[in-house]
Amino acid sequence: MAVHPGDSPVHVALRTSDVDEARAFCRKMFYGPLQVTPVGDASNFFFAGDVVMIGPVTVGQISYGSDIRVNIADLETSYHVLAPLTGTLRSRHRGTAVLADPTRAAVYRPIGDIDLDWPGTCRLLSVKVERAALERELDAALDQQIVSPLLIGESFDVSEAPGRTWVALVRLLHGELCAPDALAAQPRMAARWRDMVISGLALTVEHPYGDEPAGLQGPRRPRTVKRTLDAMHAEPSRQYTAGDLAEIAGVGVRVLQEAFRQHVGVSPLSYLRRIRLDGVHHELSRSDPWQVSVSDVAYRWGFTHLGRFAGAYRARFGESPSQTLRDRR
């Protein structure tokens, strides 16, 4: 198994009775456009958050101690699951209301505002999975193109398998990564746990694929295309040429390019650049600007020309890489 940049797990914890400090923590760990508003008597407000991050997966065990309201704009880059361990969470997303409790988890798509009524008695697992990672997992499992964002169900049962198994897996991963010197903290082991969380979620949430009738299913991708995609995701920093990728696929360069345009929508090297850009963006958005530099991260992900990299990054994310590193909250 290849270990990519960003596979080393990170554990961050906060205990505070300061609402602003708790809000800033959640924005930095999860989403920028997030509002936390105490409801009624806030004298018992006490935020407790333990968050572990491993590649495209972020898992937090969160509680507030008093009743609050949380409002989040479009997630855009991620899917999200809230699984209460105690108490009941009232959730509204895309016109659907869900009561989440220890028997049922709430699920959120990248598009659509989220409104939460979160009582002080509710302690929950907050699981963020980056959009590309979950979609790529489902895409690979089905061996076909899927429509993004996924039309997943708004909740799932966690009182029995597979939901119960997935939550147990997430809790075990979280507990291991919060513990000092745990085996799961080793990058190679952590990467395996991470992949299990993503693949388990893909098998747990409802979606309009598989045996269900779905006019959304795209054409199956040829084996040559899938083989090339697997190679690029396994080693995104490798300096592939068009000829290298064609050799991996076992076809000529022009044949592979045409297959990619038909089944992926872009050329092989354009797709590889997108993987790298997403990797850099993920790493910069989680890094301490005093400890890393944009150039170091870019080089790790295979970019050798910083000027072209910066232009491509701005075109994809609407900001410079230094802005992501400096201003991400």
Rank of each mutant, 00 (worst) to 15 (best):
V266P: 02
V292L: 08
A161H: 00
V294W: 13
Y299K: 06
P56M: 02
I248K: 11
P321T: 08
P213Y: 08
A246H: 01
A132P: 05
P149Y: 12
G60R: 08
R131M: 07
V129Y: 11
E21K: 10
L150C: 14
V39Y: 10
G163H: 08
V253S: 04
Q144V: 02
A246R: 01
G153D: 03
R94G: 03
S126Q: 14
T58Q: 07
P268Q: 04
V51K: 07
S155L: 03
L183Y: 11
R192I: 07
A24C: 02
P222M: 07
D117K: 10
C122G: 01
Y108A: 04
S78T: 01
Q61L: 09
E258F: 11
A133R: 14
T241F: 09
A42K: 13
L14Q: 11
R136Y: 12
L134I: 08
R69C: 06
L269A: 11
K128I: 03
D143W: 05
G65N: 13
R192V: 06
L150M: 14
A42T: 11
V81F: 00
R276K: 04
G87C: 02
E206P: 06
S295F: 05
A185T: 14
I152F: 04
P268W: 00
R171C: 15
L172Y: 11
A140I: 09
D101A: 01
R316V: 08
W193H: 10
A249G: 06
A73E: 10
W193E: 05
G200N: 04
T77K: 01
V251W: 02
R238E: 07
